[in-house]
Amino acid sequence: MDNNYNTIIIGAGPAGMEAAYRLSVFGIRTCLLEKEAETGGHLLKWDRIFPEGRKASEILGFMRKRIESGNITTITSARIDSIRKKAGNGYEAELATNEGKKTITADTILIACGFKLFNAAKKEEYGYGIYNRVITNADLENLFKTNSTGSIIGENRTPAVGFVHCVGSRDEKAGNRHCSKVCCATAVKQAMEIKEAYPQATVYCFYMDLRMFGRHYEDMYLEAQQKYGIRFIRGRVSEVSEDCNERIVAKAEDTLSGKPVKITLDMLVLMSGIACNPDSGKITGSLSIENDSDGFIKYADSIFGQVKGPGIFTAGTCTGPKTLPETINEAGEAAAVIYGYLKGNSNNF
């Protein structure tokens, strides 16, 4: 098969997969590049998806089926060694793949390289990587997937579990001023799942602001309070230590009462945020487009999106935190814009 495509898509997470599918419907030939061994991006790591709790594996299965098309060439375990504008029109990329080195060309590029989960160990005061009972949201998804919350909580059927919001988000010292958007809803979802698994558990969410912005998200909050009795404490956990029974002692201020609070927990879950994928800087650097000061790729227009380079497009969380449906929407939109571009409409910006 020849190595010329209409579009090279970088990253086969939800954004890249959805865009590939949409473009294939328009008859556009794409090469979908994924650096990992499997397609799916972060969706691979999640158990259930808010707000309705649908299984991530089902959504991923559906998305994978949709990219089984003659118009889509998917290459996993693909490393992009170089990517650049060709003399004249179009782009060229050199790849290292399981089948050896390969050069591919295309008229357009869609960057869909996603995000990187904030490394919670950087917030030393929370003791991630030091105390066994401190885990991240991603770890908890994995425990749910493998039915093994007991590996942390033990035999205790009445555990106390805490969730810390905004870990590595809204935190200048951690280098991320932005709000990661998805972690309030994730915390509330996971808190309810803990109560499902341990009806006698006491569950606390330590939040700074509760950002339940999306449709049905506020219903989740109400359900968490009313049906599951989850307790919301407005205040950031300031420090964590271990007691002599190797349980976790967390301190925070209950800012609504103006009093310091202390609690002993069997598990503390850190809501690691959505940080920029450092790879995106390398990709944009070779294509002469810019990243913002927060590390995410800069939009050409704050309302209409997309980037400045002719024939270069973006979709998904490489331009900032987004939920799954927002990612999917943007991928569909990117496909429409790419189709227009290939038919002779300029990029507008």
């Binding site: 609070v261 202390k262 609690i263």
Partner: peptide
């Protein structure tokens, strides 16, 4: 101490 001990909240 004015601290609230949540271990006794329930």
């Amino acid at each position: 101490s004015s601290r609230i001990n949540l271990d006794n909240a329930d």
